[in-house]
Computed example of a mutant assay.
Amino acid sequence: MYDLTGFQRDLLYVAAGLDEPHGLAIKDELEDYYEKEIHHGRLYPNLDTLVEKGLIEKGEADRRTNIYSVTRRGRREIEDRRRWEDQYVEDTL
């Protein structure tokens, strides 16, 4: 996960936290968090990068809607990242 951008990490975390997330649901969650609009030209290429890295899988809900699911590797990467973060911030909270 060290080679992901912060935005890609956020995409992965949101995809992991939603039930059958689709692009617009992920976009809405991140727009709420960032408090600004996220353009499709930023969202979908970054989701495709996560697919290429094997962290999420892309499937079709229908002809117009893709759904994303976090792979086993993606979940393991999230867990590893959380452990790494905890060693630095656990005692400060």
Rank of each mutant, 00 (worst) to 15 (best):
E29N: 03
A61P: 01
R63L: 09
D80V: 05
D91H: 11
I26P: 00
E90G: 14
G41R: 13
A61C: 05
R83I: 00
Y34A: 12
L55R: 09
Q8H: 02
L50S: 00
G23E: 11
R9T: 08
E35T: 09
D80F: 12
E52A: 14
L55A: 08
L30D: 02
M1C: 07
I56C: 07
T65D: 03
A15R: 08
R83E: 06
K53S: 02
H40W: 12
E90R: 15
E20I: 11
L43C: 00
R72T: 10
G59M: 08
E37Y: 04
L11F: 10
Q8D: 01
D48F: 10
R76E: 15
Y44S: 15
H40R: 15
N66T: 03
L30M: 14
Y33E: 10
R73G: 03
D28T: 04
E52V: 05
L11P: 00
L4A: 07
D48N: 12
L12K: 05
E79Y: 14
L24E: 15
A15S: 15
P21L: 04
Y68L: 05
R75G: 02
K58Y: 00
R76W: 08
E90T: 08
H39G: 02
E60N: 10
L4I: 10
L4S: 08
E37Q: 10
